[in-house]
Computed example of a mutant assay.
Amino acid sequence: MQALLMLVAFVALLQLSTQTEYLSSSEDICRLFPDKTKLRKPGYCDRWITCKDSKSSDGGFCNGQLFNLGKGSCQKSLESSDTYCKAPCGSKSNGYIGDTFNCANWYFCNKTTVLSSGICSNGMYFDQNKQMCLYPKDTICNAKFELCQIVPTGVKIRDEHNCDKYITCKAGKATTTTCPEGLYYDVTSGNCIKKSLVPCHKIPHPIEVCGTKKLAKRNVFVSDGATCRGYFYCRDLGSGVPDPTPAWHQCPLEFFFNEERAGCEARVDRKCAEDRCDGRGNEYELAEIPGCQHYIKCVNGAESGEILKCDDDMYFDAEAQRCTTTMKAYGICTK
């Protein structure tokens, strides 16, 4: 059991810390950056790209020079900490070796000395096993890079595994920053904003969501601390062993999670400190104001900040999504 727990914890840590991208990936690197961000073009040392609408576009080419990440411009040489463009020749290298960051590049090495280098033509890749250039369909491109190898110092990177965090790089090393409580990182604006306004597919675990080693929460459902409908299930891993990777679940649309009852409760009867428009799209949501006459305008599943009120002799019908003359008495708006 202990070995299994250590493996689970290691996998969770790996998911949080990995920053490796593969050159052959179909995902665009600009998904992680705001518009106008300037990056080194993955797989190249002499050119850069700019981001627009989460897509990469060619930014420029350094004719006879290299793109210096630290200065964000073309320079004759790179900073000492910039190892991305370093030839892969090592003390045990002998013969042809494929590049680690561009599948088309090759080097002919005599230990650490580069005797010659080149680039496969016609869109071909260098195959390390066959020691020759082949068409992409006949070989596999394993060229990869770390985010800090293409990102200038201080540029914010969206952390795909934690909505409340972002990453910055300095001298090739990554630092993770957590947004203030109640905020998520918004890649569009490059700022931490109200979490209900940021689409989050992996709700971050609240601190000690499943308890501590002194008092672990076992075989229970707990609120996700971020949404009205979401909750985590903490597995029973034994006394003093809080679940490090609790599974996230969500109540159906018309229900909110009630931690005291460890279950889902009708949203019209359950007060919630988070965004009540959770799941509503561009509809309306009953407000937690006595009298049951007030309702909230939802925009893309988030509170717009606009609270509306029915006429004095009318009440908001949560099911019909409109004001009616029928008196309503929901749990969240009755005195």
Rank of each mutant, 00 (worst) to 15 (best):
G123D: 10
K41M: 11
M132I: 08
I193V: 15
L5W: 05
K214H: 08
P199L: 10
G305P: 04
S25Y: 09
K130W: 09
E319P: 00
T20I: 15
G305E: 06
C310F: 01
P246M: 08
D311E: 12
C333L: 02
A273V: 10
G291R: 01
S73D: 14
M327Y: 07
S77Q: 13
G64N: 09
A3L: 14
G263Y: 08
C298R: 02
S24G: 00
K194R: 14
L78E: 00
T324I: 03
Q321G: 04
Q321K: 14
C85N: 10
G172L: 09
C141H: 14
R322K: 15
P42M: 09
S121M: 12
E260R: 15
C234P: 06
E146N: 15
N219V: 05
Y96P: 01
L253Y: 05
K41L: 12
V114P: 02
G70W: 01
R267G: 00
Y231S: 08
S81I: 04
N105R: 15
L4T: 12
Q321I: 07
S24Q: 08
P204R: 03
N110F: 07
Y22N: 10
P252G: 03
A320E: 12
G90K: 15
E265H: 11
N162Y: 08
R31W: 05
T113V: 15
C89W: 11
S56W: 03
G263P: 01
E274M: 11
K195W: 09
P88M: 09
Y44L: 11
L39Q: 09
L39C: 10
I296E: 01
R267S: 01
K130A: 13
R267I: 04
K36H: 12
A104T: 09
E259F: 06
L286Y: 01
T18L: 09
E27N: 12
F10D: 10
F232H: 01
A12P: 02
Y315K: 00
C109G: 02
F316I: 04
P34M: 05
M314W: 05
Y125Q: 09
F316H: 02
Q65L: 11
D278T: 07
C133Y: 00
K111W: 13
